[in-house]
């Protein structure tokens, strides 16, 4: 798996992501600066978390207009895999590569805590090392993770099976209490229609080693590495 991590000014989670990708793939990912426009040869483009451009205007709005985005769109158009985490998910929605938007958390509080995620489908390159319906723990840290889309879009996403993960209780129940940021229908992560673009707010890359307190996020990266093995 040849992976590249896109780094915008203000991004701060790229090293965590590199650790998770290297552990899964066996070699270091390429770091891609936001001025670069050539992503040829990459199987997976990762947009990590952070505060690109200081979250000016809207989270992800500036990054969505940066030079590298043209190359990322082209990568998506040729069926390449993209993973956007946290600010990366916000950037993917601002760029129109995933529908909807991430609003301020309904509580107005910045949420820095663990959450439980339910795997809504396991037949994708991202989730293949999880069981369908499995519940796993993931850290999250965001102020704007409240997923919003109009009802017609939400119905379409559900109908087409594009919801990747939902916020649930440890037992796997979809409840308002498990949905700390107020996301529509407890949506924590979404796929593109070809299932090759995944955006999610929580940080599975921060739980991939016993030294981090657990390995709940590791199957995502191991699954990707297996799916994209050359």
């Amino acid at each position: 798996m040849k992976a590249g991590i896109v780094v915008f000014p203000g991004i701060n989670r790229e090293r965590d992501m590199a650790i998770a990708l290297e552990a899964a793939a066996g070699h270091k990912p390429r770091m891609v600066w936001h001025h670069e426009t050539d992503l040829a040869g990459l199987d997976l483009v990762v947009i990590p978390g952070g505060f690109s451009y200081g979250d000016y205007l809207r989270c992800g709005a500036m990054a969505a207009q940066s030079p590298v985005m043209g190359a990322i769109r082209a990568h998506a158009a040729r069926g390449g895999h993209i993973l956007g985490v946290c600010n990366g998910f916000q950037i993917l929605t601002e760029a129109g590569l995933l529908p909807g938007a991430l609003l301020r958390n309904a509580s107005l509080r910045f949420l820095s805590m663990d959450c439980w995620l339910r795997v809504e489908r396991a037949d994708t390159d991202f989730a293949r090392h999880y069981q369908p319906g499995a519940v796993f723990r993931s850290p999250m840290a965001h102020g704007d993770g409240n997923y919003f889309a109009d009802d017609a879009t939400l119905d379409r996403l559900e109908g087409e099976g594009l919801v990747a993960f939902r916020y649930v209780t440890q037992e796997g129940a979809v409840t308002p209490e498990a949905n700390r940021n107020g996301s529509a229908r407890n949506i924590a992560g979404l796929y593109s229609p070809n299932l090759r673009v995944l955006g999610l707010m929580p940080h599975p890359e921060d739980l991939v080693d016993p030294l981090m307190g657990g390995t709940d996020g590791k199957p995502l990266f191991d699954g990707l590495a297996a799916a994209l093995a050359a």
Partner: peptide
């Protein structure tokens, strides 16, 4: 194109 996100 930039100043507003017409989704929201």
């Amino acid at each position: 194109r930039l100043l507003a996100n017409l989704v929201i």
